[in-house]
């Protein structure tokens, strides 16, 4: 019996050690350094022109959004050295990092067609180069998107059909990304000044892009809008994850749940919630 106990303890310890290696939990943030001065670091969320201006899906539906709610949480900016490569995996190695922990629901469709990316929040941060960003997408605890991780409300039109839609997506996610890729540099914070970082969402990955060829990479992996339109009742698409699981084909539902919307500008992120 005693031998069994020894073996059981050994087995348990080894299993625990193995499992402990699977996590990618960010480390606690060190204190903000005052030696280099501080500035204001803004965290922003951006649905890009696809959300602000609408677009035509890969299957020909003209989509416009009235509201598109997401709830980022635990946004963490890193001064990563060496620079972080999301494709290589792991987590940023940073002596300086700052976080905006509180979940904040924002509407990516707010403002006009030329509106700036949506401000999620700002923190005082040590001056320096913030070249990596991690964040979580969590379920809204209250407000218009209560209970949803992503809530899309708008209209879709094709030929002589117009369908209002309200699509509520579930499934919390966590992402880690490298430097922002785009027309401008982000995250370069000078003492006494303001810089921003951006969590970018590519909804064309979900619906496809009618301006791209049908066999383009962006459209091969997209659902389009037709599978959602097929779930319309009484002239409206009003679905949550349960309805989507019941109504979509297994292939389309798998695509939906595996959809990777998170970017930093055009740079890609690693979905750490799948690790």
């Amino acid at each position: 019996m005693a031998t069994w106990r020894v073996h059981l303890v050994g087995l348990t310890l080894l299993t625990a050690l193995l499992l402990s290696g699977c996590g990618n939990t960010p480390t606690a943030a060190p204190p903000v350094s005052s030696e280099v001065g501080t500035g204001t670091l803004e965290f922003r969320a951006n649905g890009e022109d696809f959300v602000r201006q609408g677009f035509v899906t890969s299957d020909g539906w003209a989509i416009s959004f009235d509201h598109l709610y997401v709830t980022p949480a635990n946004l963490t900016a890193y001064q990563s050295d060496p620079p972080f490569d999301a494709d290589a995996g792991g987590m940023p190695q940073a002596a300086v990092q700052v976080s905006l922990e509180k979940p904040t629901t924002v509407d990516l469709a707010a403002g006009d067609a030329q509106a700036d990316p949506i401000l999620v929040g700002a923190v005082e941060a040590a001056a320096g180069r913030y070249n990596a960003l991690a964040w979580e997408l969590v379920r809204a605890a209250d407000g218009p998107a209560d209970g949803a991780v992503i809530l899309m409300e708008g209209r879709a039109a094709k030929d002589d059909v117009m369908l209002p839609f309200r699509i509520s997506l579930d499934g919390e996610r966590a992402y880690v990304c490298g430097d922002f890729v785009g027309d401008e540099r982000k995250g370069i914070l000078q003492a006494g000044e303001t810089a921003d970082l951006e969590a970018t969402f590519h909804f064309d990955h979900l619906f496809g892009d009618g301006s791209a060829p049908p066999d383009a990479d962006i459209n091969r992996g997209a659902l389009g809008f037709e599978p959602f339109a097929a779930l319309a009742q009484d002239g409206m698409v009003d679905v949550d994850m349960s309805a989507l699981q019941a109504g979509l084909s297994a292939e389309d539902y798998a695509k939906l749940t595996e959809m990777h919307l998170a970017h930093v500008g055009e740079g890609h992120c690693q979905n750490t919630s799948e690790s």
């Binding site: 299993t15 193995l18 499992l19 290696g21 699977c22 999301a86 494709d87 290589a88 995996g89 792991g90 990479d217 992996g221 990777h260 890609h268 992120c269 690693q270 979905n271 750490t272 799948e274 690790s275």
Partner: peptide, 15 residues
Amino acid sequence: LLPALALAAPVTAHG
């Protein structure tokens, strides 16, 4: 559990 460790390698998207 070794295959699980392999699965724990980073999941990257298209790009």
